[in-house]
């Protein structure tokens, strides 16, 4: 009896080492019938598994327009991610999903998009950027501010360069003070400061802010100063999850099941939740 916890089997079709401890992996359904039914929204997540080590939660970081494969990108931090670090092209891994609400991309139509990300937050931003670029006429200016501790910690750098060449797109990369190399052409500083210095016009905009809690905390006042209300600022929570389907009780933040009602929330919604994330 197949149940909601039995994963789909996926073939690894591509592995890329992004940084010394981050890899991106592209996978395909082994069951072709399943592949043709599969659909998701950018901003949703999946539960990925290395058999023998267990399951882990990652954002699906490919665009929902890419029909032939899915991508995720992870940092090696523990048991499951150590095991996934060892997978190679042709290997089989498990996938359950898509889970969660995803970004309200329809609601964002007609708006300027501001993406602010720190560290391993690039994957959940990357899918939204590609989605917007593939539906270019529906969205206004796109600004991406992306920061990492050091130059070596930046992920998807080739794609950042690719986006920067596009029309009405501004990409600002930054590294923490001390994290720059002698040939670094980007900014030096923390995401909130760099973003403030960039003087981005924030009229008719929505912002997606993803990163460590301290980055989000320091970015909010900057967005507020630009006149953005809490209903136009979005984030994606990373409450620890197990089942992904509202059963196991792991992900609650106050009254919400983050795996079902989230992980994407506006700041206005988060302000109503207790500090439980």
């Amino acid at each position: 009896m197949p149940d909601i916890y039995t994963p789909d089997l996926m073939e690894v079709v591509n592995v890329r080492k992004q940084t010394p401890d981050v890899k991106s992996v592209r996978i395909q359904f082994q069951n072709k019938a399943r592949a043709s039914q599969f659909d998701f929204r950018v901003g949703q997540f999946g539960i990925f598994s290395a058999f023998g080590s267990g399951e882990s939660t990652f954002n699906i970081c490919s665009s929902s327009n890419w029909k032939d494969s899915l991508e995720f990108c992870f940092r090696k931090v523990g048991r499951v991610t150590e095991a996934l670090w060892r997978v190679e092209e042709g290997d089989t891994i498990g996938f359950r999903g898509p889970y969660g609400n995803g970004y309200p991309v329809e609601k964002w139509e007609g708006k300027n998009l501001i993406f602010l990300g720190g560290g391993i937050a690039m994957p959940p931003i990357r899918c939204a950027v590609w989605y917007a670029l593939e539906n270019r006429e529906k969205y206004g200016n796109i600004t991406v501010v992306y920061g990492a501790r050091t130059v070596a910690d930046l992920v998807y750098v080739d794609e950042l360069a690719e986006w920067a060449k596009r029309d009405r797109v501004r990409v600002i990369q930054c590294v923490d003070p001390g994290g720059q190399t002698s040939d670094w052409k980007g900014e030096v500083g923390f995401v909130p400061t760099v973003f403030e210095r960039a003087k981005v016009a924030a009229e008719n905009s929505v912002a997606l802010v993803i990163g460590p809690p301290i980055m989000i905390k320091n970015t909010l006042p900057v967005l507020e100063k630009l006149g953005m209300g809490p209903d136009s600022i979005y984030t994606s929570l990373e409450n620890r999850m197990k089942c992904g389907v509202g059963k196991c009780g792991r992900c609650n933040a106050g009254p919400v099941y983050v795996c079902k009602e989230g992980p994407v929330f506006t700041m206005e919604q988060l302000q109503k939740l207790p500090q439980d994330y």
């Binding site: 916890y5 058999f51 023998g52 399951e55 197990k242 196991c248 009780g249």
Partner: peptide
């Protein structure tokens, strides 16, 4: 109370996923 965890028990050849 009904919270549960999902883990693998086994090795890289065979095993089981349990809650």
């Amino acid at each position: 109370c009904h919270c549960f965890d999902i883990v693998d028990e086994g090795n890289s050849q065979h095993g089981k996923r349990v809650r």
